[in-house]
């Protein structure tokens, strides 16, 4: 039995979706930022940095989104090409590309003040936005031309679920509204989001997190 520590519509969402797709039993422990749950000693014992997601497993508590995802795929033999298979290399490249490039880029779009302070947040956001567009174009090109199953609209993977969550973030939550990025600009990624968000496991996860509508292919734009 797994316990996922998270917050609806935060970074724990991709783990929440992966657990639902794997159809394994788990408990969702909803943390409350305002109640100080992130600083509670019991939570800090699981993750000294006080961040979500954290997944408690039979092999101990794991943090780092990519580490949790890879662990789950290996343990359950789903959502990724298995180690030793020929398409593992391609999968790993782009999985790590998503966690090392897209994920921090999306975070910077949401909090452009964090890397260098408020004085330069506009410039930081502008550069991040441009870099994300280049990176998304590369990912879209791959999905369009090589069409690996782990970026397809009809079969979820650790990578595609991860990309889905980030597509939502970069559309809905940028600090500077002009830097919001719509998945429609990347047709193969948009089709992937449209296909996967209608799966029953994904719909159930979204409902549990209180999210309605096309959460990944066409979420609302940023609040004015």
């Amino acid at each position: 039995m797994y316990t996922l520590h998270g917050v609806p519509d935060w970074g724990s969402q991709v783990i929440h979706m992966a657990l639902a797709e794997l159809a394994v039993p788990f408990r969702f422990n909803r943390l409350d930022w305002d109640a100080g749950d992130f600083d509670a000693p019991a939570f800090r014992a699981l993750n000294p940095f006080g961040r979500v997601p954290v997944l408690e497993t039979p092999d101990g508590a794991i943090f780092e989104t990519a580490a949790i995802l890879l662990y789950l795929t290996e343990r359950h033999g789903q959502l990724a090409p298995a180690p030793g298979t020929p398409d593992r290399a391609g999968f790993l490249i782009w999985f790590i590309f998503v966690t090392n490039q897209l994920h921090p880029g999306a975070m910077t779009l949401i909090h452009p003040e964090l890397p260098g302070g408020e004085a330069v947040q506009e410039q930081v956001s502008t550069e991040t936005h441009q870099r994300l567009r280049t990176q998304l174009a590369a990912l879209n090109h791959l999905a369009e031309n090589e069409a690996p199953w782990w970026l397809s609209p009809d079969r979820p993977s650790a990578t595609s679920l991860y990309v889905l969550m980030l597509l939502r973030w970069i559309k809905s939550f940028p600090a500077i509204a002009a830097h919001s990025i719509a998945s429609q600009d990347y047709p193969a990624l948009h089709r992937m989001a449209s296909g996967l968000e209608n799966r029953s496991a994904i719909r159930a996860t979204l409902t549990a997190e209180g999210i309605e509508g096309p959460a990944f292919s066409n979420p609302p734009g940023p609040a004015p």
Partner: peptide
């Protein structure tokens, strides 16, 4: 493997 993955990705 779990502990290794956690710190490798960290």
């Amino acid at each position: 493997r779990a502990a290794f993955l956690k710190w490798f990705f960290f």
